[in-house]
Design a protein around this nucleic acid. Structure first.
Length: 241
DNA sequence: AACAGTCCCAACCGCGAATGA
DNA sequence: CTCATTCGCGGTTGGGACTGT
């Protein structure tokens, strides 16, 4: 077994630390709060961060007077309380981006989330697990199988493009569009490939639409469940071809 | 109305990596 | 170099909401 010195040291530290924490918690009967956050806790966290900023979560938790772990505070802030969190249904465009980026990077939720302003990795992960995996289950195929990936690439994504093109004007193309990325113009017509559409939306590997205002009526809005894009029978027929 | 089954999401957990003393 | 602490990621789960019978 190959293990680096650092890894070995980390293992030892982890075990020792865990034992110590458990020991102290037992002895002192410290009541670390778990479960759903109360309004008061939220207010404490928000007001503390607005005054002192985020980071150093363990000490932040103590200083803010919260009987929570630093981890719990961080999660609550990042996934729920942050002011730039975008709520509501995942739009068609966002669905498209998730499908496209997942096909490239797999379960790299945080990386995918970087390309969806206001969406958290947790939200995207939940979306994938509840919606996309549900379809794979219905079709009785593995979500990582080539068959299912092909379904996404050749059926779902083109359908999404059609729907997006039919519901959006050219004016609603992403605001990072530039003349050198002229594929966008054709991408919004029904004959484009999903690849060119994808690159037009999120600018390849760069975060290209970070300036989109989540609250304005831009191309991000107008969510629509992708279940409405096709029927289950239709999907099944395609799979059996 | 009552119950059972399913869906969905907030929150937790374990782990590895990074950072600082 | 070692040890302690913190951060961030991906996987999992508990329970409320919703839907069907």
């Amino acid at each position: 077994m190959n293990i680096s010195r650092t890894e070995f040291a980390n293992c030892k530290t982890l075990i020792k630390h865990k034992e110590e924490v458990e020991d102290v918690e037992k002895k002192m009967e410290i009541e670390i709060r778990r479960g759903p956050w109360t309004v008061e806790e939220d207010m404490k966290l928000i007001s503390y961060i607005s005054l002192h900023g985020e980071g150093r979560w363990n000490s932040l938790s103590r200083s803010a007077g919260l009987n929570r772990t630093g981890k719990s505070c961080r999660l609550r802030w990042l996934n729920y309380l942050r002011p730039d969190i975008r709520r509501g249904d995942i739009s068609l465009q966002e669905q498209f981006i998730i499908l496209e980026l997942h096909s490239r990077w797999g379960n790299r939720w945080s990386k995918i989330a970087q390309h969806l302003p206001g969406r958290t990795d947790n939200e995207i992960k939940n979306y994938w697990r509840t919606r996309v995996q549900k379809h794979a289950k219905l079709l009785k195929c593995d979500v990582n199988s080539k068959q299912f990936k092909d379904t996404i690439k050749h059926l779902w994504m083109p359908r999404l493009i059609e729907r997006i093109a039919s519901t959006q004007n050219v004016e609603f193309i992403p605001n990072h569009y530039s003349p050198e990325n002229s594929s966008v113009a054709t991408a919004t017509s029904s004959t484009s490939s999903s690849e060119s559409m994808a690159s037009s939306f999120y600018g390849g590997d760069q975060v290209a639409y970070g300036t989109s205002d989540p609250n304005s009526g831009n191309w991000f809005n107008g969510g629509d469940a992708f279940e409405t894009l096709w029927s289950f029978d239709e999907l099944n027929k395609w799979l059996l071809q």
